[in-house]
Amino acid sequence: LYHVLGLDKNATSDDIKKSYRKLALKYHPDKNPDNPEAADKFKEINNAHAILTDATKRNIYD
């Protein structure tokens, strides 16, 4: 999941948040209406963010 956000395992919560915002804006379906690959990437980014920002889920993942 870290690679989805372009981060390593030592990433801080701020790093995760910044990377998520940058990538979410880039791949958001509203910005890429005719690109199904961007929509899939956006879903991956959201999933990675949801797990890595939840301390319990992140510990389980790590």
Rank of each mutant, 00 (worst) to 15 (best):
residue 1 L to P: 01
residue 1 L to S: 09
residue 2 Y to W: 03
residue 3 H to M: 10
residue 3 H to G: 10
residue 3 H to P: 02
residue 3 H to R: 09
residue 4 V to D: 04
residue 4 V to W: 01
residue 4 V to Q: 02
residue 5 L to W: 00
residue 5 L to C: 00
residue 5 L to G: 01
residue 6 G to Q: 04
residue 6 G to M: 01
residue 7 L to K: 05
residue 7 L to M: 05
residue 8 D to I: 00
residue 8 D to G: 04
residue 9 K to I: 11
residue 9 K to D: 12
residue 10 N to R: 03
residue 10 N to G: 09
residue 10 N to K: 04
residue 11 A to P: 03
residue 11 A to L: 00
residue 11 A to D: 03
residue 12 T to V: 02
residue 12 T to M: 01
residue 13 S to D: 14
residue 13 S to I: 14
residue 14 D to T: 06
residue 15 D to C: 08
residue 15 D to M: 06
residue 15 D to Q: 10
residue 16 I to A: 06
residue 16 I to S: 04
residue 17 K to P: 00
residue 18 K to W: 08
residue 18 K to V: 11
residue 18 K to M: 14
residue 18 K to I: 13
residue 19 S to F: 00
residue 21 R to A: 15
residue 21 R to G: 14
residue 22 K to R: 13
residue 22 K to A: 14
residue 23 L to T: 02
residue 23 L to Y: 05
residue 23 L to R: 03
residue 23 L to M: 09
residue 23 L to Q: 06
residue 23 L to C: 02
residue 24 A to N: 09
residue 24 A to C: 15
residue 25 L to H: 04
residue 25 L to C: 11
residue 25 L to Y: 07
residue 25 L to W: 06
residue 26 K to D: 11
residue 26 K to C: 06
residue 27 Y to R: 02
residue 27 Y to K: 05
residue 27 Y to G: 07
residue 28 H to E: 15
residue 28 H to C: 07
residue 28 H to W: 03
residue 28 H to V: 04
residue 30 D to C: 08
residue 31 K to N: 04
residue 31 K to P: 05
residue 31 K to T: 10
residue 33 P to F: 06
residue 33 P to M: 03
residue 34 D to G: 14
residue 34 D to C: 01
residue 35 N to Q: 08
residue 35 N to M: 04
residue 37 E to K: 13
residue 38 A to K: 06
residue 38 A to T: 07
residue 38 A to V: 09
residue 39 A to M: 10
residue 39 A to R: 13
residue 40 D to A: 14
residue 40 D to S: 15
residue 40 D to I: 15
residue 40 D to W: 14
residue 41 K to D: 03
residue 42 F to D: 11
residue 42 F to G: 07
residue 42 F to S: 08
residue 43 K to Y: 15
residue 43 K to G: 11
residue 43 K to S: 12
residue 43 K to T: 14
residue 43 K to N: 08
residue 43 K to L: 11
residue 44 E to T: 03
residue 44 E to F: 01
residue 44 E to C: 03
residue 46 N to W: 01
residue 46 N to D: 02
residue 46 N to H: 12
residue 46 N to M: 11
residue 46 N to A: 15
residue 46 N to V: 15
residue 48 A to W: 00
residue 48 A to C: 00
residue 49 H to Q: 10
residue 49 H to Y: 08
residue 49 H to T: 08
residue 49 H to L: 07
residue 50 A to G: 09
residue 51 I to L: 10
residue 51 I to H: 07
residue 52 L to H: 01
residue 52 L to N: 00
residue 53 T to A: 11
residue 54 D to N: 14
residue 54 D to S: 15
residue 55 A to P: 12
residue 55 A to K: 13
residue 56 T to C: 12
residue 57 K to Y: 00
residue 57 K to D: 12
residue 57 K to P: 02
residue 58 R to M: 03
residue 58 R to L: 04
residue 59 N to D: 08
residue 59 N to W: 05
residue 59 N to V: 11
residue 59 N to M: 09
residue 60 I to L: 14
residue 61 Y to N: 09
residue 61 Y to E: 15
residue 61 Y to H: 14
residue 62 D to G: 10
